[in-house]
């Protein structure tokens, strides 16, 4: 396996897929509450009451696993340097076919921003989710505001998820390998995360 370099260990990968699976369960079970058009999605769970039940408990799993996932990578994702600023200025080179050499650490600036957005969204969805767990438990104003914020961060999360999935799969071939079995091609690492590659290649 000389062409490969280790990127995520088993714990990283399992945690990520728990977050992802619980996210899609939340999406499918939440859509029926979001708009009449999607009410039929409750059939996937055997009915609206069952769907709401799945949503509540998947929410707990999503919240806890999102926090753990964030904590695992926080050392890499919350520090920005001059290269990151260059990445943001050039939008990661995604607007042109020509290869642009922007040295990046384990995660590029876009991924760092996404991980910060994801934990923020999980916190907001989690806290507002607890408030609306029983929509008659707290004051009307707090419940109304929480319903609105929950819907807002749900929609923002959907947009973030689409971009994330695209860039992690067909948008950047070879990226998914790391999350599936932990290793990426060295060539991939040199292209996408040259600073990180130099560091791990030395060890």
């Amino acid at each position: 396996m000389a062409n490969y370099v280790d990127r995520f260990n088993a714990a990283d990968r399992i945690l990520h897929w728990i977050v992802a699976i619980s996210f899609f369960l939340l999406m499918l079970s939440g859509l029926g509450l979001f708009a009449h058009t999607f009410f039929g999605y409750f059939d996937l769970f055997g009915g609206p009451q069952q769907g709401i039940m799945v949503h509540k408990w998947a929410g707990v799993v999503f919240f806890v696993s999102s926090v753990l996932l964030f904590l695992r990578h926080v050392g890499e994702t919350c520090r920005f340097d001059a290269d990151d600023r260059q990445w943001i200025a050039k939008l990661g080179g995604y607007l042109s076919r020509k290869h642009q050499d922007i040295p990046q650490g384990k995660f590029n600036a876009g991924q760092k921003l996404y991980s910060i957005f994801a934990i923020l969204a999980a916190l907001v969805l989690g806290v507002t989710g607890l408030v609306i767990w029983d929509p008659t438990a707290y004051s009307r104003e707090l419940t109304q505001f929480s319903l609105m914020l929950h819907g807002l961060f749900f929609t923002l999360s959907m947009v973030g998820m689409v971009v994330h999935v695209y860039l992690a799969t067909i948008g950047n071939p070879g990226t998914l390998d790391g999350m599936l079995y932990g290793q990426v091609r060295k060539r991939w690492a040199k292209k996408h995360a040259s600073k990180w590659y130099r560091k791990v290649a030395k060890d």
């Binding site: 062409n3 995604y94 689409v162 067909i170 060539r187």
Partner: peptide, 22 residues
């Protein structure tokens, strides 16, 4: 937007035949 990006700019490919130890 993702679909449009894929068919215009296209994916960020790397040259697989050119692996360092390949």
């Amino acid at each position: 937007v993702a679909a449009l990006h894929y068919v215009t700019v296209g994916p960020q490919k790397f040259d697989e035949s050119d692996d360092p130890q390949h």
